[in-house]
Nucleic acid binder design. Sequence first.
DNA 1: TTATAAACAGGATGATCACCCTGTTTTTGG
DNA 2: CCAAAAACAGGGTGATCATCCTGTTTATAA
Lengths: 184, 184
Amino acid sequence: MRCKVLDAAEAAFQARGYHATSFGDLMTVAGVSGGALHHHFPTKKALALAVIEERVAAAVEATWIAPVKAAVSAREGVRAVFEAVATELEQQGFVRGCPLNNLAHELSLADPDFRAALAGIFAAWRKAIADKIKADQQEGREQGTDPQHFAALAVAGYSGAMSMAKTAQDPGPLRDCLAALGQA
Amino acid sequence: MRCKVLDAAEAAFQARGYHATSFGDLMTVAGVSGGALHHHFPTKKALALAVIEERVAAAVEATWIAPVKAAVSAREGVRAVFEAVATELEQQGFVRGCPLNNLAHELSLADPDFRAALAGIFAAWRKAIADKIKADQQEGREQGTDPQHFAALAVAGYSGAMSMAKTAQDPGPLRDCLAALGQA
DNA sequence: TTATAAACAGGATGATCACCCTGTTTTTGG
DNA sequence: CCAAAAACAGGGTGATCATCCTGTTTATAA
């Protein structure tokens, strides 16, 4: 039941955002009563915090951190994720954007707890890429690359490209950024 | 009066977002009555559309398009804007994010009219940078650079860096991206 | 001046919102 | 088997929201 609510909230926050999603919507979609909803999540803020910590963080881990760690190099890992996401969006036919970015924009100025939770996910994301660059450097590659700078540009480029892709409803910007990033 | 409302709405949308801003808030801040507000903007959507078309577009023009056009090269223009914004944010002490990105995330999936207006601004922004690269190429520089790819990465890098800066309340990511972009 | 419309004022309205409260059912530990 | 707590139902509540409506003032044009 708690899981069903989180599923519904994750999807609704992604599609319509936090403020545009009401408890009534979630009760309908998840098929739960108001009592049950407020039993598991006493406030809307508690629900959003749970979505961020349990779902958004996991999505970034699965989509970005694990693939980059498993890749043969940082650069190849970043390329592969861009490629995979672009291909998925092209097949899907619409773009809902990055869950982390969507919530970060709407909530990070609204509440310090939201902001801290979201900032932590961004930091972990960048750290995973920077660590991979450092690992590459241990093996003699990427000597001229600053790990922190590269990680920031990879994350920012992806986030920004997803913003544009969402606004244009076209994954093209992801492909453009991937091509430009290849020369960075 | 109409201008005062647009001022208040622009600031409120930037600071709290569209859904979190009520007509009551704007009436208080701008010091206008409900009748006056609804006379100039019959619906909240009409108000947001006016803010996007008259204020957000102008902000992108003033912050990005004009400086890039006036710069000695595309690369130098991009660098100068990153630098100027980072410096301004450092002095300011807080980060509210990019007005275009903030509204794009909240509104582009909510309504086709919003989406079209926002997508147009993104397109003009990218076009200005791509055109500048083409101008550089006319003068023999940037021969190995794809204008569209470079413009996409510049805009995405800035947008994404501003997202991170807003979430972290620290302009550092802008400086990191600028440094990494210098090698692209 | 005067007719006409635009600009403005401010209370009213119905819908919706997050949240609460009183019970009932289900689970669980001793 | 039995208390005690957790899980769940579902109607209720005050606040807030965008919008509307009836007037009044101000600008405009002939």
